[in-house]
Amino acid sequence: MSLNILAVDDSRTMRDMIRLALVPVGFTVHLADDGLHGLEVLDGLEPDVIITDINMPRMDGFGFIDAVRDQDDHRATPILVLTTESSAELKMRARNAGATGWIVKPFDPAKLVKALQMVAG
């Protein structure tokens, strides 16, 4: 089924990749440049899944996840962390911040779609 996605990444290339992977399969994709921007975009949005990068200017992924989880509406919204790291420590930090899971970059489009569908509708 079609999902409503919010993707937060400071890399234009990565945002393009995400868009390219998801729009053709019918997902609606909202994009933001960093955590703060992500919160602005999230306001009033009901994404099925949020994807976020970790290393970003202004507000990083951990801060963003924290802030999202602080909103009652989004306590259970799945949040996938987009990361090039696969270290256990990073995953634990993401999880402690409230992340649902992680996607290790690089991803191919089908894998990204699948990962999203694993955690939402």
């Binding site: 696969s86 690089p106 990204l112």
Partner: peptide
Amino acid sequence: VSADDFEPMGVSISLDLDGLG
């Protein structure tokens, strides 16, 4: 890390068995 993550167009959800302890 290189073996795990960085195959071109690699696996998105890696089965990270040793990842969490």
